[in-house]
Simulated scan of single mutants.
Amino acid sequence: MAVRNEAWPAGTPCWVDCQVDDPVKESEFYASLFGWEIQGGDAEAGGYLMALKDGRAVAGIGPKQQAGTLSVWTTYLAADDADAVAEKVAAAGGQVMVPAFDVLDAGRMVVAADATGGVFAVWEARNHTGAAVYGEHGSYCWNELHTREFEAAQKFYAEVFGYSYEDVGDGTTMRYAMFTPPGADHAAGGMNDDTVTLGEPMPSYWLTWFQYDDVDEGVRRAEELGASTLMPVSDSPVGRMAVVAGPQGETFGLIDTNVRVGEM
């Protein structure tokens, strides 16, 4: 099992949580799908639930802060200083949607939108260092930004987090870049140019991928539990994958990185 007990390096996706109308009900869906143990939900924590795998934190499930908004999974990017990152977000053309605030003794966070409108959170770890289990069945393994303003997004995250990029794809049927934070020796996530994909234009958004060691079974189980399939199961050079929406509408990906077909 891939386990992490210390804070994640700055700029790395370090945590994911979803905001839904009924966290308790949705936690039952994810517990059944991923085998998560659910804890928390007390008033002091605002009804926030912590999902555990083998006793270690993997994700959060909480109530929406504003009624009528979409249910979503949010990607958190690690920071050594959340306040300083908030200043960089504004300077780079983004928007600080929720200024830096303390989350009890767990950490300090910011909610922001990048220069293309993609919403993400910033996490300065204290007692809660982020995901303790990752890349394993039932835990997140990859986070990527989907945008129709590819160059603007790359410029924004380079200015705010210092990302460097490695281009992937042929630029026609697929235009993708993997990003690496400063000092890291491997990519931490990706960005997809949605202008080269078919379908209706979508606002920029971050997509969380969860490892599932049999995607076909995962999709079948998710649908049985009330989810809907947005992208059917398909093979790729990075894994067998599908995109689904939970019962309350939040979108996420399922991928089995052990099953790879073709070359990048």
Rank of each mutant, 00 (worst) to 15 (best):
V103H: 04
G94I: 00
W123C: 13
G94D: 02
V122F: 07
R56L: 10
A31L: 05
D21Y: 01
V110I: 13
P63L: 05
D80E: 09
Q19P: 00
G60L: 12
W36T: 11
D105I: 00
G47A: 04
S139P: 11
Q95F: 02
D80S: 08
S139V: 07
A57W: 00
E37D: 15
R56H: 09
A132N: 08
D17Q: 05
A90V: 09
I38Q: 12
S32N: 15
C14H: 02
L49T: 07
I61S: 08
A121W: 02
A100C: 06
G107R: 10
Y48H: 12
T116W: 02
Y134L: 14
G118N: 07
V103I: 13
L33F: 08
G41Y: 01
W123H: 15
V24W: 03
A51T: 09
W142K: 14
G62S: 10
L52T: 03
C18L: 03
V58C: 13
V111G: 10
G46H: 08
G117W: 05
G107Y: 00
Y140P: 15
T75R: 00
H128D: 13
A131P: 07
V110L: 05
R108P: 02
V20D: 06
G47C: 07
G62F: 05
A131V: 09
Y76E: 01
V16I: 11
I38N: 14
A45G: 05
A45I: 00
Y30F: 12
G130M: 06
G130S: 13
L52V: 01
D42P: 06
W36R: 13
